[in-house]
């Protein structure tokens, strides 16, 4: 009995600490008052509605979606062949390749953003949008390689050999045999990459300019100026958005198997 008491005391405390703030901010976003407060003053949807009317939120939301989708797709296009080379070939310099593609996990994002701004955007005249896109692609690359590699390593390589012996080219075998069988892993990598890129802040800090701003950066700027529940409303909307994606992925894919 004491064991059970211990278990539930600890777990409720930890959950209150981890999930509680999220519930409070959700409640606060339904406030009818004009200042951020908990318990909320009255109940209304006005702040939720307001989020959708703020022009810059709409723009930066679209920017973030494009970045997350485009960056993750590009990372997969680069990462899948690299993972395939590392898992199926005797790749010269495999360790160097592994090191290079895992760099974005080790190097803090803020440094990358600054470096790109200072040495690419300013001197070479590369647009901030492109730099942002490249930075987000690089950021997602390690996750893409990790998840896809895990899927590839779970797939027996003699299937490709069998396809080749039946007359297929190596590329054909990859498209017809390998890709359909690692589909789940690729989708999981996409979702993981999307969520990572969408929520990312440090890499985008220095890479914003007029009209180019990701949603989290926009929120950071907005909350310094405005102290009403709209950021709370947006935060809870975003939380539900991310959770919704991950839940759907888990439901239809068994997402957690791959991550």
């Amino acid at each position: 009995m004491t064991q059970k008491l211990y278990t539930w005391t600890i777990l409720s405390l930890v959950l209150v600490f981890l999930i509680g703030p999220f519930l409070i901010i959700t409640a606060a976003s339904f406030s009818a008052g004009d200042t951020l407060a908990f318990p909320p003053e009255g109940f209304s949807f006005k702040w939720i509605v307001k989020v959708f009317t703020v022009e810059s939120f709409r723009e930066s939301f679209v920017t973030s979606i494009i970045l997350a989708v485009g960056g993750t797709l590009t990372a997969l296009i680069l990462g899948i062949p690299a993972s395939y080379a590392m898992s199926r070939y005797k790749l010269p310099g495999a360790e160097t390749v592994r090191f290079l593609v895992s760099l974005p996990i080790v190097v803090p994002g803020i440094i990358v953003g600054l470096a790109l701004l200072r040495y690419f955007v300013i001197p070479l005249g590369i647009s901030i949008s492109l730099a942002l896109f490249v930075a987000h692609t690089a950021l997602v690359l390690p996750y893409a390689v990790r998840v896809v590699s895990a899927s590839l390593n779970n797939l027996r390589s003699d299937m490709e050999e069998a396809a080749v012996l039946l007359g297929s080219t190596r590329f054909g075998a990859f498209m017809r045999i390998v890709l359909p069988n690692i589909r789940g892993g690729v989708l999981a990598a996409f979702i993981l990459g999307f969520v990572t890129s969408f929520n990312q802040v440090p890499v985008s800090l220095f890479l914003s300019g007029p009209g180019v701003r990701t949603l989290p950066i926009d929120m950071l700027g907005y909350m310094e100026i405005v102290f009403d529940p709209s950021i709370a409303a947006l935060s809870s909307l975003l939380a539900f958005f991310s959770i919704g994606i991950v839940f759907a992925a888990e439901r239809f894919l068994g997402f957690s198997r791959y991550v």
């Binding site: 703030p21 929520n199 929120m219 909350m223 935060s235 975003l238 939380a239």
Partner: peptide
């Protein structure tokens, strides 16, 4: 899975 901005902002409340 939740945006760190959202999670951190909750502490202001």
């Amino acid at each position: 899975m939740i945006s760190p901005v959202a999670r951190t902002y909750a502490w202001i409340v």
